[in-house]
């Protein structure tokens, strides 16, 4: 079973007052890609995860994390 990837993109978008379209445009992906990452339907590549983190100027771990179950905690 694939590990569940939690993300806080919506929180960071809200803090930066950005829409999904604006974030998508900023990192060069489609809006659908951002919306499906947010709801956990699509697991992004490391490249996209790093681009999102770089855009918000935070470490990638601040945005993406594995669920406690997948970490074996």
């Amino acid at each position: 079973m694939a590990a569940e990837l939690n993300n806080r993109i919506r929180v960071y978008r809200a803090e930066h007052r950005m829409s999904q379209s604006e974030l998508a445009q900023a990192i060069g992906v489609s809006r659908k890609t951002i919306s499906t990452i947010e709801v956990g339907r699509f697991v992004p590549s490391t490249v996209i995860a790093l681009k999102i983190a770089r855009h918000f100027k935070v470490p990638v771990e601040n945005i993406f994390s594995l669920s406690k179950f997948d970490l074996g905690v």
Binding site: I27, G28, V29, S30, K32, T33, T36, R41, V47
Partner: peptide, 12 residues
Amino acid sequence: SKYHEAESFITD
């Protein structure tokens, strides 16, 4: 294009 990200939910 300035961006050429091949990966997307739709492509996947």
